[in-house]
């Protein structure tokens, strides 16, 4: 864990007393009182039930949502000050079902951000090869396929390759493995956690799966009804005395035949 102590003090992402509410209805809070520092190299897992505001926090980081109250700083600059296009090109984004472009081949999907950034063709092609190898797909076999010719797990691998292609310092992942069957999910989680330890990325990972959070996180932040209720390393997290933490930890234990 914490593989990069030298740079750990630098905050890449910071929330300062952020609140977000639907359009013009300040009483309808989605998230509130959010203060959070995410140092370089951290893999922060935002854990919470559906509707707890996890995805909202993610979209506040890449400027897809702007905070009506408080500031979100990315690389020491408020998201409201960033040019949204420049901000997002420096942040990889992976979502459930991958969101690959169905009319692009695997190679074109992975090459998306490098192409937008006007990399020359040989550099882009080399990068695509490198990325596909990184996520365990043989370019000779997969580069020219369309997303519909891939399995769910392969699509998700391509999604990760696409997000990493332009080498962004930050990676946002919104339940990337949520739609996969349990066996494929476990396989991708294992590979991804190994990958994370090799890459020097700051990752914010959204999930409602405690098992996934424990496996991947250097720190777990638990959200409940739009507020942070706990923040701990995976080891500490299991020992926390909080009702919502217990609700999640009890979801881990299985007694076979208990309901028979």
């Amino acid at each position: 864990m914490n593989a990069k102590p030298a740079s750990i003090s630098e905050n890449l992402i910071e929330f300062r007393d952020v609140a977000y509410h639907i359009n013009d209805i300040p009483t309808r809070m989605i998230v509130s009182d959010i203060s959070l520092r995410i140092p370089r190299g951290e893999t922060l897992v935002l854990l919470g039930r559906s509707g707890s505001g996890k995805t909202t926090l993610l979209k506040l980081i890449n400027g897809m949502l702007l905070p009506p109250k408080g500031v979100v700083l990315v690389q020491n600059c408020a998201t409201t000050e960033w040019n949204p296009i420049r901000l997002r090109r420096g942040i990889g984004y992976v979502i459930q079902e991958a969101g690959l472009f169905p009319h692009f081949t695997v190679a074109e999907n992975v090459a998306l951000v490098p192409t937008l950034e006007n990399w020359d063709a040989p550099r882009t092609a080399a990068r695509v090869q490198e990325m596909l190898h990184l996520v365990g797909l043989d370019p000779r076999d997969f580069a020219h396929r369309l997303p519909r010719e891939l399995s769910g797990g392969q699509r998700q691998r391509v999604g990760v390759a696409r997000a990493l292609a332009a080498d962004p310092p930050i990676l946002l992942m919104d339940e990337p493995f949520g739609a996969l069957d349990p066996v494929t999910r476990a396989e991708l989680q294992r590979e991804f956690s190994a990958l994370v330890r090799r890459l020097d990325k700051t990752i914010v990972f959204v999930t409602h799966d405690l098992r996934e959070a424990l496996l991947l996180a250097s720190r777990i932040v638990l959200l409940q009804a739009g507020r942070i209720v706990a923040s701990a390393t995976p080891q500490e997290f299991l020992r926390l005395d909080h009702a919502e933490v217990r609700a999640f930890t009890s979801s881990l234990s299985v007694s076979p035949g208990a309901f028979v």
């Binding site: 296009i85 997002r88 459930q96 009319h103 937008l116």
Partner: peptide, 27 residues
């Protein structure tokens, strides 16, 4: 168009016209 596709297009830093001409229109 699949909202996930449009969401990732936006999140990847495509401009509005890039999304229109490279994603929405071909699809």
């Amino acid at each position: 168009i699949d909202p996930a596709v449009l969401e990732s297009a936006e999140a990847m830093g495509m401009t509005r016209s890039q999304i229109l001409f490279r994603v929405r229109l071909p699809l």
